[in-house]
Every structure is written in structure tokens, then in C-alpha cells.
């Protein structure tokens, strides 16, 4: 009955709607011509850029390091699929965004992390980080980091257990460089951690963040394919150098090189802070965003209770993005004052 009346209404409104209903006229919103880049192409490019980091993680921590990564991907993609079915919307799994969220989350988990908890993290990342806000593009916070923050708050022991089953016979238990710096003996710290080790990645840490070199390769892929712009990465790195350097000149902390190469600083700068959805739109805003993350990270590392602060720094700056966009809005050409 309702259908009949709507058809009658449509006929009253004119010929155009009739043509649409017969399929003779196609209505498409602008833009009518674009670059050919689709969401899925960007997502899979980032996935490729992440492969060196994944490879380095497997190389240093053993093939078992794949287990939490796969768990996180399963959780994220599964949640995306279920949310799509509940909302009765088009299937968003093939666009690769949920796969990427899962992969990103997996790479920032400890290598020996429980796979079941990794699945939970993936579900939380997509469900609480993205779906509750309305899906891709509407989320305020970086979904993968939301998942990690949830896991960090839920399983603090598992999230700080850096032991790995490297060989067939025994597991290697090790502290992260930042952990050593904060809680360990200074002499041990200076002896064990060299810059080359930090660069190549044979140090304790999350799966994807261990090898700085692999992350730099990923960054090169993102920059060459123009998937990510250098502004946020660059301002965050420069901010790291400036703030860490300033503190080390005052006698606090180990200096810029160590700060940038250790922990999640590079990984966060290249893959997390550059997320389109949760970073500012304006050019100036992007500089502010990157520098803000660097400042918060260094402050947390120097004066906070935790050894590492990249995750919380990025999440905090995510929350500030609407404000940054507002303040750094470009002046309209020709407008006065």
C-alpha cells in the first residue's frame, strides 16, 4: 500500500523520477572525474608498505610472531563483517580498511601476545574504534590504537611481556630499550643498546616497531606512491629531535637519536599519525599535529609513569584534531582580517 502511494507521488513530481525508476537516467553526485584512487587501493598500498616491518618482526622474533598478527586481523575483519550485516549495508570488508586496522594492531602487539586477546583487540579496534562512530571516515580516534589502548588497560601483564619463543628450545626474555632506560641500570643500558641495533631491529619491542630500517622502507613506499604526505611524518620527527634534544641538553634523557629509533616513535609517525581520517586537513594543522605528538611522547617518556608514550600521544592529538582544523583554517583569498 505504501509502495503504491510513493509511486503515485513520484509520477506527480515529473518525468525525471520516472526515467530514474526505469533506469534510463543515472544520477551521480560530484566529483564526476577523479584520480582513480579508491579506498581499497590506498588501504592495500599501506598494507604493502607494512610488509617489511612484518618481515623484520618474523625474522627477529620467529614465525610465532605471526600468531597475534593473524589474531588481530581475524578479529578486525570479522567485526567489520558482522557490523555490516547488522547495519544491512554494503559489505565493507573488501575495501581493506578492516584488514589494515587488524594488521596495524597486530604489529603493535608484543610478539608472544595471546592470540585470543589479539582477536578481542581487533574486535574492539573496529567495533569501538570505528563502527560506533559510523564507520570508516567518521571515527575520531585511530582504530588500531583504540584496540591497543583497550588491550593495554585490560591485560597490562600480557602487553608488557616482551619474551619471545625465538628458537625451538627456549624462550628469550628481554626488556625493551625504553624499559631498560626507565627502569634498568644505566650502565647495562649503555652497554646493551647500540644505535645500529636500534636501526636494524634486534631489540625487544612490539612486532612491527623493532626494525627502524623496515619502517623507513615502508615510509619510502608511502611517500613515493603519494599515499601519505611527508608533513605529519616530518613535523613529528623534527619535533622529536627538537624536544628530545632540548631535554638532553638540560641533562634529562638520552637524546634525539635514541628517542626516535626506539619504541613506537617511527612506526607511529609513519603509519599511525598519517591516518587520513584522524589527522588534520589543513597544511598548518598537520605540522601542529605532528609536533604535538612528538612533544607529548617525549614528555611521557621523560616524566610519565610508562616507558613509552607514542600511543597515548597520538590518541590525545586525535582528540585535538577538530580544534586544530578550526584554528588553522586557511584564510579565504581576498578576505580581510
Amino acid at each position: 500500500m505504501a509502495d503504491e502511494s510513493s509511486v503515485v507521488d513520484g509520477a506527480k513530481k515529473g518525468v525525471a523520477l520516472k526515467a530514474v525508476s526505469e533506469g534510463n537516467l543515472e544520477l551521480v553526485t560530484s566529483p564526476h572525474s577523479h584520480f582513480g584512487w579508491t579506498t581499497s587501493r590506498i588501504m592495500w598500498t599501506v598494507t604493502i608498505a607494512l610488509l617489511p616491518s612484518l618481515g623484520a618482526g618474523i625474522f627477529y622474533f620467529g614465525p610465532l610472531a605471526l600468531v597475534p598478527v593473524i589474531g588481530a586481523i581475524v578479529g578486525a575483519v570479522g567485526c567489520e563483517w558482522v557490523v555490516g550485516r547488522i547495519n544491512k549495508k554494503a559489505d565493507t570488508v573488501p575495501d581493506g580498511s578492516a584488514f589494515l586496522t587488524g594488521l596495524l594492531l597486530g604489529l603493535i602487539l608484543p610478539p608472544g601476545f595471546s592470540p585470543l586477546h589479539a582477536v578481542l583487540g581487533g574486535v574492539v579496534a573496529v567495533g569501538l574504534g570505528k563502527a560506533v562512530f559510523g564507520g570508516l571516515g567518521d571515527n575520531i580516534f585511530n582504530p588500531a590504537l583504540v584496540g591497543r589502548a583497550f588491550l593495554q588497560a585490560s591485560f597490562p601483564a600480557g602487553m608488557t611481556d616482551w619474551s619471545t619463543a625465538v628458537t625451538r628450545v627456549d624462550a628469550v626474555s628481554q626488556a625493551t630499550p625504553l624499559g631498560l632506560f626507565k627502569f634498568g641500570e644505566p650502565s647495562q643500558f649503555l652497554g646493551d643498546i647500540t644505535t645500529s641495533k636500534l636501526l636494524l631491529g634486534n631489540v625487544g619491542g612490539c612486532i612491527g616497531e623493532t626494525s627502524s630500517l623496515a619502517i623507513i622502507v615502508g615510509a619510502a613506499i608511502l611517500l613515493v606512491t603519494r599515499v601519505a604526505h611527508w608533513r605529519i611524518m616530518g613535523s613529528m620527527l623534527l619535533g622529536g629531535v627538537v624536544f628530545s634534544g632540548a631535554f638532553s641538553l638540560l641533562g634529562v634523557g638520552p637524546g634525539p637519536l635514541f628517542d626516535i629509533l626506539s619504541g613506537g616513535f617511527l612506526f607511529g609517525a609513519v603509519f599511525m599519525a598519517t591516518d587520513y581520517v584522524t589527522s588534520p586537513n589543513t597544511t598548518r594543522g598537520q605540522y601542529v599535529f605532528g609536533a604535538g605528538i612528538a612533544l607529548l611522547t617525549i614528555l611521557i617518556r621523560r616524566f610519565g609513569g610508562l616507558p613509552e608514550g607514542v600511543m597515548y600521544s597520538i590518541l590525545l592529538m586525535n582528540a585535538a584534531v577538530p580544534l586544530i582544523n578550526r584554528v588553522t583554517r586557511p584564510r579565504i583569498f581576498g578576505a580581510t582580517s
Binding site: 595471546s114 586477546h117 578481542l120 569501538l128 560506533v132 583497550f150 588497560a153 585490560s154 591485560f155 597490562p156 600480557g158
Partner: peptide, 22 residues
Amino acid sequence: FEPWIVMILPAGAFLTLGFMLG
């Protein structure tokens, strides 16, 4: 079943209440 410590922290209250309101 390893307890989700976040649920008895303040964040868990907001999450649970949010889901109930939803």
C-alpha cells in the same frame, strides 16, 4: 578466562553504560 581489567576501571563504566544506552 583472563579478566578484562579495563572493565572495573572507570573506562569500563563508560563503555558498558554506552552500550546499554545504545
